[in-house]
Every structure is written in structure tokens, then in C-alpha cells.
Design a protein around this nucleic acid. Structure first.
Lengths: 214, 214
DNA sequence: CAACAAACTACCCAATCAGGCAGTCTAACT
DNA sequence: AGTTAGACTGCCTGATTGGGTAGTTTGTTG
């Protein structure tokens, strides 16, 4: 937490990337690379003493016992104030992005980032932002943008039936609540199953919730 | 879709903001404010002819019949290639942010943005990015970061059983996947029902997902 | 070692469920 | 008027489920 420079730690197993990033950071006033690690284990052991403001963490760490994603959670537990920015070579794996963010990372960059953009991202993360490469930011945002047929997917009755099911009611109770017959409830579920392509109430509830229908 | 300039349309009811933004945009090479609107209705009527690359849209439009959020969906339907960046004065309403993104907006800025940052955001949106003010970007990211007591509720086996159920599997299939007997699956469900206080798979899946356990 | 809790397996029973088939009723479109 | 589509109800069958009870194995603790 220096007043003058942003302290940065790099965790990256590829020598070339690590050295280049360190040079970029140390070369510029206001930034200081306080430590570098080639693997998560040694990083986790020493990171508290380094006390960096921002950590650049490779997401695909070679033959480590733990991945960069798991390391995020461990480090965040020790240094909750430290911002972690993930680095990746390929931007093609959605699961990586979201697992990292869920684990506590604040940003996500591809390694082809320019020096200026890298430093800008470090500054943004330190200031409370969420620096992301363009395609990654877009990917994150699009997860909020469901398929256009969202609302037209289920009818009003189907939605109500399903949301009552999600409230742990059985068919008879749903029927009473909606003032329709038990068989009509079953009829609606058949429609729900067809539209959501599932074969059970639990599958339907899960899929509907994931799609934002409930 | 100009090769030279990014065409921008502004939808904003406050005269001062609208004029300032237009000046900023027209003053700089590479940006052109092709139209301005004070309300959603007139914007929606004319926007197709304007055919802007990027729209800056106020989110709190005064006494309009529709809000800026609804307008996003309508405009996106007409101009799917156009990027929409929301403008807001207060950054404190999570629902606005997520509703806008869900409706199809690509970015989200507070109105106290600097001229350079505004132009940068327009360029980013046009290039496929997702420009967001620092606190807003952080808010979006934190929605991916669930509460810390997430895993403590259910055992590892229970969580796995439940997540397989959420994938629409029946007990026998879950048992095969986990290499345990069908009755053991049922045993785990009993534990899940007790802990979540439900009496059905669909109730359990819904409650677990709402709690962020899945 | 004894006691204990847990994870696991098994079986019973009544209720519910999923899927298929059939029929009614109403509103909309031709 | 005839056709069509959708919402609704009913029933049948076999399978699954929820709840209960009980025995085994395993590891842990005193």
C-alpha cells in the first residue's frame, strides 16, 4: 500500500512473459514489481510479506498441484485488499473467466496486452475498477444478455407453475394455488419439459433458473 | 458504419448534458454526433435512418412512457449492430445496471465522465468492448463473487448429487456417474432435504441455486 | 478396545411422477 | 361453417420418489 508506487507481484511460469511484464512495470514511474513467482505454491507462501497492491496471475500454470484459479481464492483469503488480475493466452474458455471472477479476481487480460494497456489495467484494478480485454469484457456482459426468445419461452401459466414448483410444492398444491386441476398442472409441466428439453421437475427448475426465467 | 468517423446518437433529456456531450463528440476528429433526442419515442422513430454506430442513452428519462432500459431492447431489435452505452447520474442502483445489460446495452457510464473517457468509451464500444465506469465494472464483476459461506452448507457428495440432479438426471444416472448405489443417492438427498428444509428435488434445486450453492 | 458418528447399502410402502392417449371447450383464422 | 390451435381435464401404466427402518463398513475419539 505505498503512497508513491503501485506494488505488483507477478505469478507466471513462462520466463519470457514474466520477465517482459516485470520490465514494463519497473520501467515506469508509479509502478514497482516487488516479486515474481514461477508457481502458485511459492507465491502463496511469500505473498503476505510482499504485500502487493496488485497481483498479475497466469491462469494456465503448468504442472502445479493447484491452478491459478484456486490460488486466487487462497490469496484473497490472506490479502483481501489485494486486487488480482488474471492473465491468459487464449480468450476462448468462458468457464475460466467466470471461475476466476467467482474466486475473487478483479480483472482478466490476454497476454498480448500492450505495455500501456497493462499498466492502465494495473492502475484501474488498484483504483477499484475491473480491467478486462475487449473480447473478455464483452463476454462477461453478454452473460447478462439472455437469448432474445427469453420471455416468449414459457407461457404465463407455465412460468407460474414452475415457480410454484421451485417453492417446493407438489402438483396438488400447485393446482389448488392456481385453481386448476391437478391434471392441468401436469399438462403444463409437459409443455415446460418440451420447451426446456428436460424430463423432470428438478431439471426444469434448474434450467429455467439458469436461463433467468424464474 | 462510416469508415472515417464513429457515428454517435445521443438520447438524453437534460439539455445541458446533451449539448455538452454533443460538443465533445463533434469537436474531435473520428467522432460525429449524427443526431440528438430528448426522449425515447422520437429516438426510436428516427434511429434507423440515423443508423449510428453507437448510441449514448440516458437511463433515467423523465416523464417518458418507456424507460431508457426498455428503449434499449426496442432499438437493438431494429439495429442489432449498433452498440448502446447507458448514461447515469447515480451509480447506486444495481437493478438498473443489470437490466440494461440484459436488455442489450454494451456499456455503462456515469455522467461525470471526462471528455477523453467518454470518447474512449465510444471507441471501445464500437470495437466490441464493454466500457464501464470503474465502480460499475466492479459491481458487475462482484456479482460473480458469491458469499464466502457458500460451500459450508452441503457436503461435497451432496453438492455433487444435487448438481447432477440439476442437470436433469434421475437417481440411477446420478448413482452411475458417482459410482455409488442408487440408495446412497437417495440417502444423500435425505440429507439435502433436511439441510435445505425442502421435500422434493425441485425444491432443493431451486433453493440451492438461490443460495448460490450450485 | 469400546463407543461413536459418518457414509453407505438395502428394503418396504404409499404417494407421486412422466409419458402416452383421448376428449372437451373456446377463440382465432379461412 | 369448417379448420386449426391452444388450454384444459381425465385416465392408464410403469417407473420414480419421499419417508421410514435397519444393517454394514469405516474411521475417529476417548
Amino acid at each position: 500500500m505505498s503512497n508513491e508506487s503501485i506494488w505488483v507481484t507477478i505469478v507466471e511460469d513462462t520466463d519470457r512473459f514474466r520477465e517482459v511484464f516485470a520490465l514494463i512495470i519497473d520501467d515506469r514511474d508509479g509502478y514497482r514489481c516487488v516479486s515474481q513467482y514461477k508457481d502458485c505454491e511459492s507465491a502463496i507462501q511469500n505473498i503476505v510479506e510482499d504485500n502487493p497492491d496488485v497481483i498479475l496471475m497466469d491462469i494456465e500454470l503448468g504442472d502445479d498441484k493447484i491452478t491459478g484459479i484456486e490460488a486466487v481464492g487462497l490469496i484473497k483469503a490472506k490479502l483481501p485488499e489485494t486486487e488480482i488480475v488474471m492473465l491468459t493466452v487464449h480468450e476462448d474458455n468462458d468457464a475460466y473467466i467466470f471461475d476466476s471472477l467467482c474466486a475473487g479476481a478483479s480483472g482478466y487480460l490476454t497476454k498480448d496486452v500492450s505495455p500501456d494497456a497493462l499498466l492502465d489495467a494495473i492502475r484501474q484494478a488498484h483504483k477499484g475498477g475491473a480491467p478486462m480485454s475487449l473480447p473478455i469484457a464483452r463476454r462477461v456482459v453478454t452473460t447478462f444478455q439472455q437469448s432474445p426468445d427469453k420471455a416468449s419461452e414459457l407461457s404465463a401459466h407455465e412460468t407460474r407453475v414452475l415457480s410454484l414448483a421451485a417453492a417446493d410444492l407438489v402438483d396438488k398444491e400447485i393446482a389448488d394455488k392456481m385453481d386448476i386441476s391437478r391434471d392441468t398442472v401436469r399438462y403444463h409441466f409437459k409443455g415446460i419439459y418440451r420447451k426446456l428439453q428436460v424430463h423432470s421437475k428438478h431439471g426444469a427448475v434448474a434450467k429455467a433458473m439458469r436461463k433467468g426465467l424464474l
